[in-house]
Amino acid sequence: MTFKLIINGKTLKGETTTEAVDAATAEKVLKQYANDNGIDGEWTYDDATKTFTVTE
């Protein structure tokens, strides 16, 4: 399955996707991606669209 991350950061905005077997696995990968890029904020997840959003 494809999961999307929408980034609403102070210095970085955009989106990325990852392939994962489930939402929990995708969340780990996407949170690591955000952490690697210095993004720390509030996370939400929409199961209907398989989209995570992080807002700083």
Rank of each mutant, 00 (worst) to 15 (best):
Val21Trp: 12
Thr53Ala: 05
Lys31Trp: 11
Met1Lys: 09
Val54His: 01
Met1Phe: 15
Gly38Arg: 06
Gly41Cys: 02
Gly9Gln: 06
Thr55His: 11
Asp22Trp: 03
Leu5Ser: 00
Asp47Tyr: 11
Glu15Pro: 04
Tyr45Arg: 02
Thr25Leu: 11
Thr25Ala: 12
Asp46Gln: 04
Asn37Cys: 05
Ala23Phe: 15
Lys10Ala: 15
Glu56Ser: 06
Asp47Lys: 10
Gly41Ser: 02
Asp46Met: 04
Val54Tyr: 02
Ala23Arg: 12
Lys10Tyr: 15
Lys50Leu: 11
Leu30Thr: 01
Lys50Trp: 07
Thr18Val: 14
Asp22Gln: 03
Ala48Arg: 13
Leu12Lys: 07
Asp22Gly: 04
Asp47Pro: 14
Thr55Val: 09
Ile6Arg: 06
Ala48Pro: 10
Thr44Cys: 06
Thr16Ile: 14
Ala34Asn: 03
Asp36Trp: 06
Gly9Phe: 15
Val29Leu: 12
Lys10Glu: 11
Glu42Lys: 09
Val54Pro: 00
Phe3Trp: 11
Thr11Gln: 10
Lys10Gln: 14
Thr49Asp: 07
Thr17Phe: 15
Ala24Lys: 10
Thr55Gly: 05
Ile7Ala: 04
Asp36Asn: 11
Ile39Gly: 02
Ile7Val: 08
Lys13Trp: 10
Asn35Lys: 11
Val54Leu: 12
Trp43Ala: 00
Thr17Ser: 15
Ile7Asn: 02
Gly41Pro: 01
Thr2Lys: 08
Val54Gln: 01
Gly38Leu: 07
Thr17Cys: 07
Gln32Cys: 05
Thr11His: 13
Ala23Lys: 13
Tyr45Ser: 01
Val54Glu: 00
Gln32His: 07
Thr16Arg: 10
Lys4Gln: 06
Thr2Ile: 14
Lys31His: 08
Trp43Ile: 03
Thr2Leu: 13
Phe3His: 02
Asn35Glu: 15
Lys50Cys: 06
Glu56Ile: 15
Val29Ala: 08
Thr16Gln: 08
Gly9His: 14
Ala48Asp: 12
Ala48Cys: 04
Gly41Glu: 01
Lys4Ala: 05
Val29Asp: 07
Trp43Asp: 00
Lys13Cys: 06
Asp40Pro: 05
Thr18Ser: 04
Gln32Ala: 13
Ala24Cys: 07
Ala26Asn: 00
Ala34Ile: 06
Val29Asn: 07
Glu42Tyr: 13
Met1Trp: 14
Ile39Cys: 04
Thr11Ser: 13
Thr55Asp: 07
Thr11Asp: 13
Ala48Gln: 09
Ala20Met: 03
Glu27Gln: 10
Trp43Val: 02
Lys50Phe: 11
Val54Ala: 03
Thr55Gln: 08
Asn37Tyr: 12
Val21Leu: 15
Thr18Gln: 05
Gln32Pro: 02
Thr53Glu: 06
Thr17His: 11
Ile7Tyr: 14
Asp36Gly: 05
Met1Ile: 15
Trp43Thr: 01
Ala48Met: 12
Thr18Tyr: 09
Trp43Lys: 00
Phe3Ile: 02
Leu12Met: 14
Thr25His: 13
Leu12Thr: 10
Thr11Met: 09
Glu42Met: 08
Glu19Leu: 15
Val21His: 15
Thr18Ala: 11
Asp22Lys: 03
Thr11Trp: 14
Leu5His: 00
Thr44Arg: 09
Ala20Pro: 02
Thr25Tyr: 08
Lys4Met: 09
Val21Arg: 10
Lys50Gly: 06
Phe52Thr: 00
Asp22Phe: 03
Val54Thr: 03
Tyr45His: 01
Tyr45Thr: 01
Glu56Asp: 09
Leu5Gln: 00
Tyr33Cys: 04
Thr49Arg: 07
Gln32Arg: 14
Thr49Glu: 07
Thr16Trp: 14
Thr17Gln: 15
Ile6Cys: 05
Glu15Lys: 04
Gly9Trp: 09
Gly41Gln: 01
Gly9Tyr: 09
Asn37Val: 15
Ala26Thr: 00
Ala26Leu: 02
Gly41Ala: 03
Met1Arg: 09
Ala24Phe: 15
Ala20Tyr: 03
Ala24Leu: 13
Glu19Arg: 14
Gly9Asn: 08
Thr17Gly: 05
Thr25Ile: 06
Asn37Met: 14
Ala23Leu: 12
Val21Ile: 14
Tyr33Gly: 02
Lys31Cys: 04
Ala20Asp: 03
Thr2Asn: 07
Leu5Asp: 01
Thr2Cys: 07
Thr55Ala: 06
Val29Arg: 13
Val21Ala: 09
Thr51Asp: 01
Ala23Val: 14
Thr55Glu: 08
Thr25Met: 11
Phe52Met: 01
Val54Asp: 01
Lys4Gly: 04
Lys31Leu: 08
Gly9Leu: 15
Asp46Trp: 04
Ala24Thr: 13
Val29Gly: 04
Ala34Met: 06
Asp46Lys: 03
Leu30Ala: 02
Val21Ser: 14
Lys50His: 13
Phe52Gly: 00
Thr16Val: 13
Thr53Met: 10
Asn35Gly: 12
Ala48Asn: 12
Val29Glu: 08
Thr49Ser: 12
Val21Asn: 14
Asp46Phe: 04
Thr25Gln: 12
Thr25Phe: 09
Ile7Gln: 03
Ala34Thr: 06
Glu56Asn: 05
Thr49Cys: 04
Thr55Cys: 05
Asn8Gln: 10
Thr25Pro: 02
Glu27Asn: 04
Asn8Met: 15
Ala20Gly: 04
Gly41Arg: 01
Gly14Phe: 14
Asp22Val: 02
Asn8Lys: 12
Thr55Ser: 09
Asn8Cys: 06
Gly14Ile: 15
Tyr45Asp: 01
Tyr45Ala: 01
Met1His: 14
Ala34Lys: 02
Ile7Pro: 01
Ala34Pro: 01
Asn35Pro: 01
Glu15Gly: 06
Val21Phe: 14
Thr18Asn: 03
Asn8Phe: 12
Asn8Ala: 10
Ala48Trp: 08
Lys31Pro: 00
Tyr45Pro: 00
Glu19Asp: 11
Ile39Trp: 10
Gly14Leu: 15
Glu42Ala: 15
Thr55Ile: 08
Glu42Pro: 05
Ile39Gln: 03
Asn8Trp: 13
Gln32Ser: 09
Asp47His: 11
Ala23Tyr: 15
Thr55Arg: 06
Leu30Trp: 04
Lys13Arg: 15
Asn35Asp: 14
Asn35Tyr: 14
Phe3Ala: 01
Ala20Val: 04
Glu56Val: 14
Asp40Leu: 11
Glu42Ser: 10
Gly9Glu: 03
Phe52Leu: 02
Leu12Trp: 15
Tyr45Leu: 02
Thr17Lys: 12
Thr55Pro: 01
Glu15Asn: 04
Ala24Met: 10
Thr2Asp: 06
Gly14Cys: 07
Thr55Trp: 11
Asp46His: 07
Gly41Val: 02
Ala48Gly: 10
Phe3Asp: 01
Ile6Phe: 07
Thr18Phe: 10
Leu5Glu: 01
Lys10Leu: 15
Leu30Phe: 15
Thr51Pro: 00
Ile6Pro: 00
Ala20Asn: 04
Thr53Arg: 06
Val54Met: 05
Glu56Lys: 04
Ile39Arg: 02
Glu15Asp: 06
Thr2Ala: 08
Glu42Asn: 10
Thr25Asp: 09
Lys50Ile: 03
Phe3Leu: 01
Leu5Arg: 00
Glu15Met: 04
Thr44Gln: 08
Tyr45Ile: 01
Thr16Glu: 06
Asn8Ser: 06
Met1Gln: 13
Thr25Ser: 14
Ala48Phe: 12
Thr17Glu: 11
Gly9Arg: 05
Lys31Ile: 07
Gln32Lys: 13
Ala26Pro: 00
Tyr33Glu: 02
Thr49Pro: 02
Thr2Ser: 08
Gly38Cys: 07
Gly14Trp: 15
Gly38Tyr: 07
Ile6Gly: 02
Asp40His: 13
Ile7Ser: 03
Glu19Ile: 14
Thr18Gly: 03
Thr17Ile: 08
Asn37Lys: 12
Thr55Leu: 06
Phe52Lys: 00
Glu27Tyr: 09
Ile6Leu: 09
Thr18His: 07
Phe3Glu: 00
Leu30Asp: 00
Leu30Glu: 00
Leu30Ser: 01
Lys31Arg: 14
Phe3Gly: 01
Asn37Ile: 13
Met1Cys: 07
Thr49His: 07
Lys13Ala: 10
Lys13Gly: 07
Thr11Asn: 10
Glu19Met: 15
Glu56Leu: 10
Phe52Arg: 00
Asp40Met: 12
Ala26Met: 02
Asp40Asn: 14
